[in-house]
Design a protein around this nucleic acid. Sequence first.
DNA 1: CTATTTTTGTTCGAAAAGGTACGGTTTGCC
DNA 2: GGCAAACCGTACCTTTTCGAACAAAAATAG
Lengths: 254, 254
Amino acid sequence: MILPISNTRNRLLRSMASDDLRTISRHLSPARLDLRRVFEQPGRRIEEICFPETAIVSVVARGSDNRGIEAGLIGCEGMTGVAVVMGDDQSPNETYVQLAGTGAVIAADDLRGLILASSTLADHLLKYAHNLMVQTAQTALANGRATIEERLARWLLMAADRVGGSELALTHELLSLMLGVRRPGVTNALHKLEGGQLIRAKRASITIRDRPGLEAIANGFYGVAERDYDRLFGGKTMAANDVEPAINLAGAAS
Amino acid sequence: MILPISNTRNRLLRSMASDDLRTISRHLSPARLDLRRVFEQPGRRIEEICFPETAIVSVVARGSDNRGIEAGLIGCEGMTGVAVVMGDDQSPNETYVQLAGTGAVIAADDLRGLILASSTLADHLLKYAHNLMVQTAQTALANGRATIEERLARWLLMAADRVGGSELALTHELLSLMLGVRRPGVTNALHKLEGGQLIRAKRASITIRDRPGLEAIANGFYGVAERDYDRLFGGKTMAANDVEPAINLAGAAS
DNA sequence: CTATTTTTGTTCGAAAAGGTACGGTTTGCC
DNA sequence: GGCAAACCGTACCTTTTCGAACAAAAATAG
């Protein structure tokens, strides 16, 4: 029940040169990405890298104390392990699955070899790494200057882009960890959004009803990194992603 | 009064392979980096890249409205223009000199050529680019979770590392722009630090008196990116930088 | 040495967000 | 169906930060 990787829903894979895609496909394995599956950990060598399809993976920065915050969000438009693309073998950030789904994984060593062998592949992945850096800079901006409501709107839009759908299965608690705010603060902000008919919230599930409305609420804190991605990887807006997932989870690899 | 680039005080240059340093030196020009000199601007092609020596350059992220915030700080440990190193030719962030001083500049096109010609050079600069990404992630963390006092302590430590000295010539106003907070908020936090004998503040000048004390106040928000830099580029701590500047600004340094 | 600009000190009230606690729902499990 | 766990709604008071305005001090220019 596993379709070939070349039909993957991951945009970063799909937008690479067909030669590169063919080559990398031989090393990629379709995988179910379960909640909290870890891809990077401070002080540990990165062993595996993933290209999400319907899952969302978070990059979380931590200080020397324990409090963390999300510094990057990765979905079907990207990949984990940009440290490897940039010639390092580890990162001080944690990277783990935030919203379960599917994706394709590859051994870090394999990817290193492929990058050495194909400069077009290296270029392609490096451009994404730079876009992720831009996203992180925008997150720093939002964390410093936006209200909880604005940051929440931004996060929901980004997440919706990355799963290619409008329903997000996550709890207030998770959102509060990502945004680095109090859990009731999230509840409160969600109520405001729901009051404006911008989202519908059920238990552990948020559905976007009015994208333009959300973008207006996000008040300029959403969009910079996304437009830069489109400039680099082609015009289609991120949200327009209605391809079927490459992996049919019925009986897929555990 | 301009010494050869090979004696530069820039650590990123000094730590590269001697072949690469020799080659790149032929394209580098020593330069005075005056306040507000711009190296990158959203939507514009990056033409010139600099390796600061005694200057500090800021990467500032802006949203679609006008409010910006510092997302990266670059001094004698790094370089501007990581977008170019990563195969792009522009960035949505602004990059400009925050604290005047000296440095070396190179045309972006020249650097592109050198990177293509030397994979060891490319590797070296890419590692720095990754470190800058880590720094930005830590900034996102600090912006989201630290108090003004903690963020200020962090910023002062980072800036002192990057100028290789303990005196910083800047105003509360500038700091408030970088940190994205109210100007009186900076004044207030500086008073607290001064009360604890951690700094001495004069008009448009802050001197660090007690580094360990400042690190304690920074409360875990300083150090992660710095330790990662040392892991990548060698053990010496950033602050230990007592080489003379390559450019003698006669009379400029009071 | 006076006038002007720049920088810093200080104040007020208001808004935003934090910490904590607890009650109410929904869900899932036995 | 009943119990436990997970998740959400709400309330309280405190702290932090903001916005705005204005006064004092230091540098600078004429």
